[in-house]
Design a binder for these strands. Structure first.
Lengths: 69, 69
DNA sequence: CTTGAATAGGGTAATTAGGGGA
DNA sequence: CCTGTCCTAATTACCCTATTCA
């Protein structure tokens, strides 16, 4: 099994998420600010997004908003 | 470098689709509403269209219509 | 440590959504 | 039935500079 995986969730950069939705990276930032998209922050303040959540949103699956910026 | 590219479908904005068909963007919206054209929504509610589907329609290839939205 | 690309901010134009009517 | 236009509100895109990432 995958008992040796230390919670390695695939993360996407703002540019990658923006490319998937065909929007500006700034728009992705606004979604994170509005709590429409969960965001993980680097220690420097940059945002990273969960690939699984982004794909789910692209597929039109409504998600719960647990995170707000 | 290919590990950094999540399969991204080329998407078109309403204005781009409208320009290709030589119609008003509002007309493209009606097509999406009528289910004649599948649409992907941004988190803000704006529509994005699949380039492959648009090109197929431009080429005169009949598409399936799933009545939606 | 140095470099080049990407991101965070903020502020201002341009698109889009939606309804309604021609 | 299908399309183009007018309206308001909301969303998104592009401008800049400083900071962070790889």
């Amino acid at each position: 099994m995958t008992t040796r995986s230390p919670d390695a969730e695939p993360l996407l950069t703002p540019a990658e998420v923006a490319a998937l939705f065909r929007v500006d990276p700034k728009t992705v930032t606004r979604w994170a600010k509005a709590g429409k998209l969960s965001s993980i922050r680097t220690l420097g303040g940059h945002r990273r997004y969960r690939e699984s959540e982004v794909r789910a949103l692209l597929a039109g699956i409504p998600q719960q908003r647990l995170d707000e910026d």
